[in-house]
Design a protein around this nucleic acid. Structure first.
Lengths: 216, 216
DNA sequence: CTCGTATCGTACCGTACGGTACGGTTCTGT
DNA sequence: ACAGAACCGTACCGTACGGTACGATACGAG
């Protein structure tokens, strides 16, 4: 599996960044080969030489963007309840931040728009390059919490997906649809707090009154 | 607010159904005016006369589809815990069934693909015509349960969104992305059961202890 | 200095789409 | 029966896009 590092030259990376910019600004319709060549001061011939065809360009954009968002791994410090809780809240915040980001939304819209085409692998590529890192990080975090006896679950994937649902709810789709008033990063913190709170209600291990009486 | 009933002639409805068929089968690229005219045995001129332009056609398709899915309202029988639970499970099942349906996925993909265009109202239209009915039904259901003392919440919208997240998790986006192996209707029942179970853990009222009252 | 390579800018080609126009046909009301 | 409207099928137009070709330019290797 790929090492999350694109093997493109700096020039090519700059072009891919321009392409992402066009995509974010104007959607798929704005991302034409001629437009990209003009915006990036390169020739269409170079685009086709580097990326093969338009689909190759789109795939390269996803790979390039994924290579920039390095999934940081949480250090293995000693986990008490408070630290674990903080890590979960951080994860939830990061997740909302990522999903609500301009580039993420634009790439997801692109991949979803292409999903009907049978020969398009953009969706799988997006999940493989983008989601799996997040999943790994969350899985490790949950596993660490379970081993310390802070939470309990039968199926880690099920617990993770529940956690994901508690955090994201229907926000992702509504942001993808462009609904007004949904993208409000100032609310992410509160959403993350509440999701973690609910996650602990579902999967937390009662320590007989050891539950930190945090303010909510 | 519209009455969830499209004011189109049967002929026009048949054309809109053909259009939905083309969209489901081949995505947005397959839905061309010429293609639709050929498939529906009508003239392009009629299409433009009836729907104005392509965007009008797309909007009409959404309205037409929404008019077919009538949000049935649950009868007001006496609610005991078992009945209430059954209604919640039914709602969860219906929700998964709807979101995973061919037409719903195709229309959502279409609206999401257009979401970048500033002048596109498809996303808002889809939410307005499709989601609001579901939201109303769920809201009424939750409110009935609360008034019977079966569940407790401070904010109904928050409780509903949590319920939604527990049911759908990340399934909707992954289905939209076309990930293989995600659309498995045979799993919906188990997912619905588990979501309702978790929902009761979070918001259910124990007959003995009346705790679990959360603010926020 | 010179050759080769990579790249740029532009021009070009074929295609496909949105939208319009028009002659011929069917349907409807009187 | 007849007039008018609605509609079909097709042809047509302008545009825009993906992809290719080509001459011009910059630059490193020998």
């Amino acid at each position: 599996m790929p090492e999350m590092q694109d093997d493109y030259t700096p020039r090519q990376r700059a072009v891919l960044d321009k392409a992402l910019g066009l995509l974010v600004e104007g959607g798929e319709r704005a991302l034409t080969t001629a437009g990209l060549a003009r915006a990036a001061n390169c020739s269409k011939e170079s685009l086709y030489k580097w990326f093969g065809d338009r689909d190759g360009l789109l795939a390269a954009m996803i790979a390039h963007q994924a290579s920039k968002v390095r999934a940081r791994i949480d250090g293995g410090e000693k986990l008490d309840h408070g630290r674990f809780r903080t890590h979960l809240v951080d994860f939830a915040n990061d997740l909302l931040q990522v999903l609500g980001g301009d580039v993420s939304l634009a790439l997801n819209r692109l991949a979803i728009g292409q999903a009907s085409r049978e020969d398009s692998r953009l969706g799988a590529l997006l999940i493989e390059r983008g989601r799996h890192g997040i999943d790994k990080r969350a899985g490790a975090l949950l596993e660490a919490g379970r081993q310390r006896g802070l939470i309990a679950y039968g199926d880690r994937d099920a617990a993770y997906h529940t956690f994901y649902g508690l955090i994201v709810r229907d926000l992702h789709v509504r942001m993808l649809l462009g609904e007004a008033g949904v993208r409000q990063p100032e609310n992410y913190a509160a959403l993350a707090e509440e999701a973690v709170e609910q996650f602990f209600v579902l999967f937390g291990v009662r320590k007989e009154e050891t539950t930190g009486r945090d303010r909510v």
